Simulated scan of single mutants.
Amino acid sequence: MDAAKQHAPATQRNRDAIAEVLEREVPDSGLVLEIASGTGEHALFFAERFDGIEWQPSDPSTQALASIRAYRDDFPGSNLRRPVALDASAPDAWPVATADAMLCINMVHISPWEASEGLFAGAANLLADGGGPLILYGPYLEDDVETAPSNRDFDRTLRARDPRWGLRKLGEVDALAAHHGFARTARYEMPANNLTVVYRAK
């Protein structure tokens, strides 16, 4: 295996469930911008599964970008673009000008709140006119839903690593979305106490 390739075991467990949501929510063609692509394994899988879509991976980490490039080198198709360096917390400096959909997996809780603020600000720049979806995957806290013990433990672990991290209240994410002109249009329950939530311009 290429030394640059990183591996995230959760990718194998959640990629099919996420793909089922993408089949419902993303257009059949166009460009999907993936924010915080991490290892690149999701990008590889989704680009192969949705061969009519141009898939644009991104990440702020040089190690992640190297991993994505290494996986891309083995990709037989032509719709997986080279990864770009993108810091979600700096939406005015994104190297992508437009997209037909955006996907962000497991970033909101493993980053400062400023990254989520930048994510929605960037989505407003890229998606608002076309009405494309911003799709988020990960664990969330909901006022009317009991939090699973595993998610409570995960939240404590994250906050111990960095007090700026942690599971977000879905209501606060909805409020942030509304501030940038988006409304939540779908909520999907996913394996292992995760959610996929979809936002579109109002």
Rank of each mutant, 00 (worst) to 15 (best):
A123I: 04
P83E: 11
A85G: 12
D51Q: 13
S67A: 12
L136G: 09
G52N: 12
C104S: 14
F50W: 02
L127D: 13
E142H: 11
S67N: 09
A47R: 08
A101H: 08
D87Q: 12
A128S: 14
P60L: 15
G77K: 03
L126T: 07
L86Q: 04
P91F: 09
A123C: 01
E114A: 15
D51P: 09
N106C: 04
V108Y: 03
D92A: 13
L80G: 06
P139W: 01
H42F: 10
A90W: 05
Y137H: 00
F75H: 13
E142L: 15
N106F: 05
V108T: 15
A99N: 00
F50C: 07
I135K: 01
L136M: 05
A115C: 15
A70N: 09
I135V: 12
P95I: 14
R81W: 00
S61Y: 01
L65H: 05
A93L: 13
D73Q: 14
A99W: 10
Q56E: 10
L65Y: 04
S37H: 08
A99R: 02
H109Y: 03
G132M: 02
E54K: 10
N79S: 05
W94L: 13
G38A: 11
Q63D: 15
R81G: 07
A43K: 07
D100L: 00
L127K: 13
S37R: 03
F120M: 11
N106Q: 06
W94Q: 11
A93M: 06
S61F: 01
P91Q: 08
G77A: 12
L134V: 05
L44N: 10
P60T: 06
D59M: 08
S111R: 03
M107D: 08
A101G: 05
L86S: 02
G131Q: 00
T39S: 15
E41N: 08
E41W: 01
R81T: 04
D100Y: 06
T62H: 07
G132S: 00
E41D: 14
Y71A: 10
F46D: 01
A128C: 11
C104D: 07
S78K: 12
W55H: 05
R72I: 04
P112I: 06
V84S: 01
G40K: 13
P60E: 07
A47I: 08
T39M: 00
P83M: 01
L86E: 03
L126S: 09
D73T: 10
